[in-house]
Every structure is written in structure tokens, then in C-alpha cells.
């Protein structure tokens, strides 16, 4: 336990020393908030089901933070560790994969939560963002979605041979999902066929889960099941496929 705490703390410091790596978690969502908030404001709009643009977008931006951390940030970080022989050095000490993976989960989850908190706080103070109807539920949804996407990240890191490949595959999977799932753009602007297709994308379920809890529609059972199922399967796969070198 002491090792896990220490490892997480050191990893946290390392992440903050390399600020480029946390751009998409900490800075980019704020840029989107101020860009679209500046253009559209947050007045209720019939096109967005009577919600303001900021109120309509923030759950999606949160999903984006979760997705980018899990599918791009984590796989790159882990495969760089493997490529450079850092995992090799760790392995010579009496530690288990669980310690390495656990500290990565902890540090990425914490940084995601910091990114989400700064996004929500900025939204409230600048645009009068509505608070979630179910705040505890929304927090739990963030954690569940975060764990689910981080477990996908571990699978990507295990199955891609190099850090360059991890980056390419992560981006190729993430960016289309970011636009189609409603994370970066409201799905109201998409044609119906794409909206229907987006139901097969994991990130769509994060957006749905968060939006429903935010707007008082309760837990979205389908989204919750998909994300939990993904977490179980991906965790099982990543434990089997984890490679130190």
C-alpha cells in the first residue's frame, strides 16, 4: 500500500513536469468551453431541447476528458515505459503488474478529476452552468467511465508493439468517436444515421450516462451495462496480455 501511494505520488509529479502530456485533460476542454461559450453563450435554445449551449456541452466535454486519458494518454505513457526499459527496471524489484497498473489508474483518474473539476467550476462561474441533478451519481459515473476507458487503454498498450503505434491506434480510434459520440459536438448537429451508428461507440455511452444523470433522467441502464462490461472484459484481457518488455 505504501508502495502504491508513493508510486502514484511520484507519477503525479512526473505528469505535471511534462505539461504537454496533460494538455488534452486539463487545458483543451477549457478552450472548448470558452470558445463555444463565447460564441453561443448559455441561453436556452429550442434547438438544444431548451438547454443552453454550455449546459448541453459540458457532460460531453467530461466524456472527452475520460476518453482521451484512457485511449491516448495512458497507452502512450505505458508503452514509452516499456520501450525505454523503465518497466524492465521496475520488474527487477519485488513489485507486481498490479502496482504499476494501479498507480497508473490512480494518477490518470486523479488528473481527469482535476480537469473535470476545473471545467465545471469555470462553467459555473463564467456561464452559470447548471449543476447535475444527481451530483453523487454523476461523480460515480465519471469514476466508472474513467476506469472503463483506462482498462481499454491498458489493452491498447499491450496490443500495440511501440509507443508510436499506440499513439496512432489510440488517435485513430478516439478522434472519430469524439466527434460522433456527442462529446465534442452536440449530436443534434449530426445526421440520424450517424447518431444511430454512434450507439456502437463506447464513448457515446459515457456521454449518455453523464447527460442523463446531469439533467435528472437517472441512471441510463444500457450505458452503465456497456461500460461495466467493457471494464470487466478489458481488465481481464489486460492482465493476460501485460508485457514488461
Amino acid at each position: 500500500m505504501q508502495a502504491l501511494t508513493k508510486m502514484t505520488w511520484v507519477e503525479m509529479k512526473l505528469k505535471l513536469r511534462e505539461p504537454v502530456g496533460t494538455f488534452f485533460t486539463l487545458v483543451f476542454p477549457l478552450l472548448l468551453l470558452f470558445l463555444f461559450g463565447g460564441i453561443y453563450g448559455n441561453d436556452p435554445s429550442p434547438f438544444l431541447g431548451g438547454r443552453g449551449s454550455v449546459d448541453n456541452s459540458v457532460p460531453g466535454y467530461i466524456a472527452m476528458i475520460i476518453g482521451t486519458t484512457g485511449m491516448i494518454g495512458l497507452p502512450i505513457a505505458l508503452s514509452v515505459y516499456r520501450e525505454q526499459g523503465i518497466l524492465r527496471r521496475f520488474r527487477a524489484a519485488p513489485i507486481t503488474p498490479a502496482l504499476v497498473l494501479g498507480s497508473q489508474v490512480a494518477v490518470n483518474l486523479i488528473i481527469s478529476l482535476v480537469g473535470i473539476a476545473s471545467l465545471v467550476i469555470a462553467g459555473i462561474f463564467v456561464y452559470g452552468l447548471v449543476l447535475p441533478e444527481a451530483p453523487v451519481g454523476a461523480f460515480l459515473a465519471v469514476v466508472i467511465s474513467g476506469l472503463s476507458f483506462l482498462s481499454i487503454g491498458f489493452v491498447l498498450a499491450s496490443l500495440t508493439p511501440t509507443s508510436t503505434a499506440a499513439q496512432a491506434v489510440g488517435m485513430a480510434l478516439f478522434f472519430p468517436m469524439m466527434f460522433l459520440s456527442g462529446a465534442a459536438l452536440p449530436q443534434q448537429v449530426l445526421p440520424e444515421k450517424l447518431v444511430a451508428f454512434s450507439q456502437y461507440l463506447p464513448l457515446t455511452h459515457v456521454v449518455n450516462l453523464l447527460q442523463d444523470l446531469w439533467y435528472g433522467d437517472g441512471w441510463n441502464g444500457t450505458a452503465l451495462l456497456v461500460l461495466l462490461g467493457m471494464m470487466v472484459v478489458a481488465t481481464a484481457v489486460s492482465i493476460r496480455t501485460f508485457r514488461w518488455e
Partner: peptide
């Protein structure tokens, strides 16, 4: 254990 081709995080 001191290994060949091992490393630590850059930062």
C-alpha cells in the same frame, strides 16, 4: 539487480 538496457522515467 543491475540490468543492461534499463531506464527510469526522464523526469
Amino acid at each position: 539487480i543491475q540490468l543492461q538496457e534499463a531506464s527510469l522515467p526522464d523526469y
